[in-house]
Design a protein around this nucleic acid. Structure first.
Lengths: 333, 333
DNA sequence: CTGTTAGCGCTTTCAG
DNA sequence: CTGAAAGCGCTAACAG
C-alpha cells in the first residue's frame, strides 16, 4: 500500500506538495500532472484515518436506529446513506434495539470512531442520563447531534419529527368520509412517543367528530409478529367490532388484513384497514394498503443540513423541524 | 476530549502502562484500578483511528450489497452486523446498485477507511478487472476478501453460495407432488448468476419429470415493481397459462399473487405461487407465501470466520462453502 | 510489569 | 506555489 510519501518521492516533490495536489488544491502547480500520474501508477489511496487523526475530523456520521431489519428504518438508512454520500460523508450504522444499554454502546462506538456527527432515532427508546452525558461531551467537541423520532420540544438537540397528529387526522378524515363511525386503533408499545402521539390524534379526531371512544377498540403493546395476531383477534372477534382499524405501521396493518380474512371478513367491505410508513410491500398487498407516507428523503436531506451546520464554527440555536406526512389511498379502505 | 496521555498523567503512570491496562492487558498491575478510575473520571474514550494508524488494523469490515432497500439484503446486513459485532468488528456498508462503477467506488471507499476485510455480494453485478485489481491489492496487504452470491468456482477468493439448483429442486418436487404439470418461471435479470442457476434448476427438474419446457412460460427481466406487472400479466393472460409459477424472489411472488387476484384467479386453487428468500412479509401475505429460506445466520457466521481466518498470518488455501436452503410451505401452493 | 523511543500517514503552520 | 518541521493519539519494540 503506497503512501503519499512514496508518491511524492516518485514525483520528486515534497510530501506536502503532493498532499495539496491530491487534495484538489494547488490547481496551477507545475507538478500537478506528474503527481497525479505517479499516484495512479502506485495505486495510491489516501489513508483517511491518518488524515482524520491530524484534522480531528472523520467524515463519518453515526446513524442509530432502533432496528435494522424493520423496513421503515431501512428506508431511512438508505436515504441517510444517499444524502450523506452526496456531501462526501459515510454512515456508520448501529442499532439500539429500543434498549438504553445498546444505545449507550452505539454512542460509544461512534465516539470511538470519532464520528463528526450523530443521528439518533429515539422513537423506540429513552435517552438516559448516561447517554445524555455522552452526547453533551460530543457537542462540546463541536460534533453535531441530530435527533429524530420525538416531538419533545425541549430535548436540547436539533431535532425533526413527523407531525403524527396531522398524519392521523388525515387518515381519520378519510375514514369518516367513507362513513366509518366505529373505529379501532392498533399500535406498538405504550410509551413510544410516536405511538402515543398517533393515538392522541386518533382520540382527538373522534372527539372532534362527536364519536365515542371505545377503549376496547384501542390496543397498544408489543408489535412483534409472534404475539400481534392474538391482540388483533381479540379485537376482531369481540361481540361488537369496529368497521375500520387504524394501525401505527404497515406491518401491523398486514397482520390485521390477514387476521380479518381468516375471520371471514372482507377488506375493505367488512373492515377497512390503514397502515403507516408506506413500505414497499404496502402496494403489493391484497388488497393494497391505504397508508401514510413520511417524506423520508426530505427528512434525510434536512438532517444532513443540520449536521453540517452543527459542524460549522459559529454557535447556532437549536432547530426543530416539523414534517407533514401524505395519505396514500389504496384498496384497503 | 481526553486522551490516553491525560489519563496516564492523572494516574501518574506512563502512557504505555495506561494503554496496556485500558486495552485489558496487565491484569495484575498495581496501577490497574487507579488508571481505570482516572479514565472513567475523564470520560476517556479511545481514539480508534489513532490506534488503527499505528497497528495498521481498523476493526472495520466493508460490506457491499447490491441494494440496501431490498428486504433480503437488509436481512443479510443485519446478520452480518450481528456476527461482526460478536467478534468486535464494525461494518461499513456500501451499495453497488448492480453497477460496476459503484462497485469500484465502494471498494475504494473501503480502502480509504482501511478496512480489515471486505464482503462483496456480487449476485447482481460483474467484477470488472479494475475491481479485481483493487481486491488483489487488498489481499496483498493481508486484508480478507470474501465473496457471496456466485457459484463461480474459480473466482479466486473465499466465497460462499446458496445451492440454487437444490433449492429450486425442492420447490419443484413440492409443486409436482401437488400435481402441477404446467409450470412457469418469473425471475430477475438475465445474466444474474443466481437467477440463471435457479432457472437451470427449474429446467432440469422439468426434464427429470419428463415434462416439456414451454419458453412462453419463462420470463426473465427487470424485477422493478414499476415494470414487473406487465411481464406477469403477459404470462397470466396468455391463451394457455401455467397452473403454478416459480418466482426468484418474494417480491416478485407478491406481484404475481396480486396480478392473479386482479385477473380473477384464486391462489392457490387456480394458480400456485412460490417465492424465494422468505422475507418477513412472506408469512403475512394473503395467502401466505410458500418460499425458500436461505440460512442467512449460518452464512454470516461463516463469512466472519473466513474473514478472520484471512487476517491471520499464515497463508491458507481459498475456501468455498455451499449452503442448502429450506423450503417453507405455506398457503400459496 | 513498566517506561522510553520511535513512528504509523497525514496535514497544519509557518517561512521561503 | 513549495518545503521543513511538528504533531494528531496511539502502540510496537525494546530495554530495564
Amino acid at each position: 500500500m503506497s503512501t503519499i510519501n512514496e508518491v511524492a518521492a516518485l514525483a520528486s516533490v515534497s510530501p506536502m506538495t503532493a498532499a495539496r495536489i491530491l487534495a484538489g488544491k494547488s490547481l496551477r502547480s507545475k507538478s500537478r500532472e506528474r503527481v497525479l500520474q505517479c499516484a495512479r501508477k502506485l495505486d495510491y489511496v489516501r489513508n483517511q484515518q491518518a488524515a482524520n487523526l491530524r484534522t480531528g475530523r472523520s467524515r463519518l456520521i453515526g446513524v442509530m436506529v432502533p432496528f435494522i431489519d424493520n423496513p421503515f428504518y431501512t428506508k431511512f438508512l438508505q436515504e441517510m446513506h444517499d444524502a450523506l454520500g452526496a456531501q462526501g460523508y459515510q454512515s456508520l450504522i448501529a442499532c439500539s434495539f429500543g434498549e438504553s444499554s445498546s444505545m449507550l454502546a452505539a454512542v460509544s462506538l461512534f465516539e470511538t470512531y470519532h464520528v463528526d456527527g450523530i443521528v439518533l432515532d429515539i422513537s423506540e427508546g429513552v435517552v438516559t442520563r448516561e447517554v445524555q452525558k455522552r452526547l453533551q461531551a460530543l457537542q462540546r467537541r463541536a460534533r453535531s447531534v441530530v435527533v429524530t423520532g420525538t416531538q419533545q420540544h425541549d430535548i436540547g438537540y436539533d431535532h425533526l419529527y413527523l407531525d403524527n397528529h396531522s398524519a392521523i387526522a388525515k387518515v381519520m378524515r378519510h375514514l369518516l368520509s367513507r362513513s366509518h363511525r366505529e373505529l379501532g386503533f392498533i399500535g406498538g408499545f405504550e410509551g413510544n412517543p410516536n405511538i402515543e402521539n398517533r393515538l392522541d390524534g386518533f382520540r382527538h379526531a373522534l372527539r372532534k367528530a362527536g364519536l365515542p371512544i371505545n377503549p376496547e377498540w384501542i390496543s397498544l403493546g408489543n408489535p412483534a409478529l409472534g404475539v400481534l395476531p392474538q391482540r388483533v383477534n381479540r379485537l376482531l372477534r369481540a361481540r361488537k367490532r369496529p368497521t375500520a382499524i387504524v394501525c401505527t405501521s404497515d406491518m401491523i396493518a398486514m397482520v390485521v388484513v390477514k387476521a380479518a380474512y381468516e375471520a371471514g371478513l372482507r377488506v375493505p367491505q367488512d373492515l377497512a384497514v390503514t397502515g403507516f410508513d408506506d413500505i414497499e410491500q404496502a402496494s403489493l398487498l391484497n388488497p393494497s394498503l391505504t397508508t401514510v407516507r413520511q417524506p423520508l428523503r426530505a427528512m434525510a436531506t434536512d438532517i444532513v443540513d443540520l449536521l453540517l451546520r452543527g459542524l460549522g464554527t459559529k454557535r447556532v440555536p437549536i432547530q426543530e423541524k416539523r414534517f407533514e406526512a401524505d395519505l396514500v389511498i389504496r384498496e384497503s379502505t
